[in-house]
Write a protein that binds this DNA or RNA. Structure first.
Lengths: 155, 155
DNA sequence: TCATATATTTTGATTATCGAAGTATTTCTT
DNA sequence: AAGAAATACTTCGATAATCAAAATATATGA
C-alpha cells in the first residue's frame, strides 16, 4: 500500500514536471523556429494575430483583439505592422462602415498554414506510437485540462 | 476501414484543437489569476523569473537570464524591480565577487509555492479520474511531447 | 604584471502596450 | 427626421520591457 502510493506520487511528479517544461518552453521554441524560418520578419505575437484572423471567416478588428487579449488601440498598431509587411488586409465592411474586416493575404495564408503544421506536428508527437485506445485516454486528459482552464477563465 | 480512418482522424483533430486551446489560453489564465491574487504587483514574466530562481539552490543572474531567455541587461532591470518589491535578494558571491547570486525572500518563497500549486492543480486536472494504467499512458504522451520539443531546441 | 576574459550594470534607442481623446458612422429617441 | 447616444476604430501621449553597446569591477592566464 505504501509502495503503491509512492509509485503514484512519482508518476504525478514526473507528469507535473514534464508539463511545466512543455509550457515553459513551447512559446520560446515557436518563437525561435519562426526566426529561423522564411518568415523571420514576424514575432510569435504577430503569428497569434494571424492565427486569430484565420482563413475561413472574416473577423473584425475588435473581435480579433478580444481573442488575443489586446486592447483595440494596440490591435490597430499590430495590424498596421502586418499590413505593412504584407500578411494582412483591411477591408471596410459594406454593411457597417465603422467596422474593419481582417483577412489574410496570400503570404499570410502561407504562414498560417505553416503554423498549423507546427501545431499538428506537436499533436502527432504527443500521441506518437499510441494505439487507438491509448489515444482516446490522451484525448480525455487534454480535454480535462482544457475544461479546467476554461472553467477558471469564466470565473 | 474507411470508417475507422475517419474516427482516428476526428480524434486527432480534437486533440490538436484542444492542445491549441490549452496553449493559447494557459498563459493568459495564469496572468489573470495572478492579477486577482494577493500578488497582483507582479506579472507572469516576473513569476517566471521567480520560478527560475527557485528555492533550492543559489543561481547567478546570468544563469537565470539564460533559463528564461533574457539578455543579462534585461535581467538586471527585472531583478531590480523584484528586489524593489521585496520578492528577491541579491547576494554577491564570496568566491567570485563579479557574480550576483539570487535568492527568494520570504514573500518570494510564498508566491513561488503558490505558483507551484497552480501547476499542480493543472497536472491533477490533466489526470482527473484516470486509473494507474491510464495515467501512465498520459505520462508517456506528455513525455513524448517534451522530448520532441527538447529535440527541436537542441537543433 | 599586464592583457584578456567574464559577470554585471548603465546607457540610449526601439518597440509593445495602454488609456484617453478624437473621428466617423450607426442606432435610438422623441 | 433631427439630435443624442452608442459603437468601431484610430491617434496621441505616456509607460514599461527589451536589446545592443559601452562601462565597470573582478578574475585568470601568459
Amino acid at each position: 500500500m505504501k509502495k503503491m502510493n509512492e509509485v503514484i506520487t512519482t508518476d504525478f511528479e514526473k507528469i507535473n514536471s514534464d508539463l511545466v517544461d512543455v509550457f515553459n518552453n513551447v512559446m520560446w521554441i515557436e518563437e525561435a523556429s519562426l526566426k529561423r524560418s522564411y518568415f523571420s520578419d514576424i514575432t510569435l505575437k504577430d503569428m497569434h494575430t494571424i492565427d486569430a484572423i484565420s482563413m475561413y471567416d472574416e473577423k473584425s478588428a475588435s473581435q480579433v483583439a478580444r481573442m488575443i487579449h489586446l486592447t483595440p488601440s494596440a490591435m490597430t498598431t499590430a495590424i498596421d505592422k502586418l499590413v505593412q509587411k504584407g500578411y494582412v488586409e483591411r477591408r471596410r465592411s459594406r454593411t457597417d462602415r465603422r467596422v474593419v474586416k481582417l483577412g489574410l493575404t496570400h503570404k499570410g495564408r502561407v504562414v498560417y498554414r505553416a503554423h498549423q503544421g507546427f501545431h499538428r506536428d506537436m499533436a502527432h508527437n504527443f500521441m506518437a506510437g499510441m494505439t487507438t485506445e491509448e489515444a482516446s485516454v490522451v484525448q480525455r486528459a487534454i480535454h480535462n485540462l482544457k475544461s479546467y482552464l476554461m472553467a477558471i477563465l469564466s470565473k
